[in-house]
Design a protein around this nucleic acid. Sequence first.
DNA 1: CGCAGGATTGATATCAATCAATAACGGTGG
DNA 2: CCACCGTTATTGATTGATATCAATCCTGCG
Lengths: 250, 250
Amino acid sequence: MSQTTALKQQIACKNCPLRKLDCFREMSPDEVDFMSDFKSGEFSAQAGATLLVEGSNSPHLYTVLEGWGFRYKSLPDGRRQILNFILPGDLIGLQGSLLNEMAHSIETLSDMVLCVFERDGLFDLFKSSPSLGYDITWLAAREEQMLDEHLLSVGRRTAIERAAYLISFLSQRARRVGHLEDQQPLIPFTQTHVSDTLGLSLVHTNKTLKKLQDRKLIRWSGKSCYVLDEEKLMAIAGWEGLPDSRRPFL
Amino acid sequence: MSQTTALKQQIACKNCPLRKLDCFREMSPDEVDFMSDFKSGEFSAQAGATLLVEGSNSPHLYTVLEGWGFRYKSLPDGRRQILNFILPGDLIGLQGSLLNEMAHSIETLSDMVLCVFERDGLFDLFKSSPSLGYDITWLAAREEQMLDEHLLSVGRRTAIERAAYLISFLSQRARRVGHLEDQQPLIPFTQTHVSDTLGLSLVHTNKTLKKLQDRKLIRWSGKSCYVLDEEKLMAIAGWEGLPDSRRPFL
DNA sequence: CGCAGGATTGATATCAATCAATAACGGTGG
DNA sequence: CCACCGTTATTGATTGATATCAATCCTGCG
């Protein structure tokens, strides 16, 4: 549980691997310079590690370089709701930095590499580089938009619609950041994760996924989910898909 | 529907009525000056008006000066999910401004007065006043935090817990902005709004509210809900309450 | 081989949705 | 002032969806 290892800085922002993906916006040389200063190191964590805990007050912000994770909240008796998944290019810890206390926890699903920033430098970022400040706000608005859709899903979609939405949503996000190239599995997560995302019981989640499998829309083998027909999944969910504009990252 | 009336600018930012409420952060004279420039007018809308529509591309941002509203999304077949309620001091239209297209709609519950800003001026705000840019990001993070809690609620709380959470949540927010002084009703909304927020059917919502009423925690009379025991509601929901720090507004 | 975590399944119990009325209330026109 | 009407709230009966319970089955791994 929560075994993590700190590493030294290894990648220069200029050569950031994320910069090669065409889902991300270009950064100006000035912005890259600023980020090089703002970056205070790298951090890697093993699969299953807890990165941030509800109620804590982390001095850091992170951008995900590699790996998968998820944000969640729990009720006092242990019921858990997964709020969103975290993929490369995502900024995490912003709530903690601005509002002073994390209201959710974060766990890794796979091994993960993170780029580390000091929250104390955040206001300086807004002063020194308005465009990067704007980008952070952009990312916050995007997260809000995803949450809106999840809330619609959990509140108003049926079990099968929810499952179809979740899987097509994750499939699209994964593809954007270069995963799913050739029939790679979706995410290394379990049906327990799916059920805690959909707001359903584990058993009912299993039966619902089975229906999708019977219709040949997905295949769940071993610990992985393969997406066979994203279009049909989106149709079942009544979901339009992600906007396809390029997005910023830090 | 959607009958709205434009009004001339009437209130100087310096005398903004919100500034008197002690739930809001102080603004420096420079910031107030900037806001005076940024503000392009006022707008008032009748109860029941639609302010912004999913899919549209509004050229404006607004800060609520008076009144109540809500954000919602709909599925193709009409099922509706209310995402959050909007109270004085809230900034709306940010998603539309940053991401270019609104992914939700906004409707008023009461007559409403809004302070209007041009989205084209938004980047200039980040350049000219980093602290206001930071504030906008703060507000976005706060909205995200509320959505996280709603998602936990809809995904993992039982019907009565959800209802208890929603009502204590709204009660707290209302009180902060000076409503609920002496047994004022909570919000001018119907049980249909409650059901679309909780992700429950109207009938079941009614029966659930009745239970809260039988326990003397709320009273629903006419079109209004009165909160009788916020503490117990929070205990039922297993909810900690809102943080009580001051917050910024634009 | 045996174990552990995850997936699957069938039976049953609950919760919440739906259906179908009815009641209460506010506003309107006569 | 009263009858009428539309909206909202309320209620009981029934159906349907999802949760819970309790096994069993895999599969990767030491």
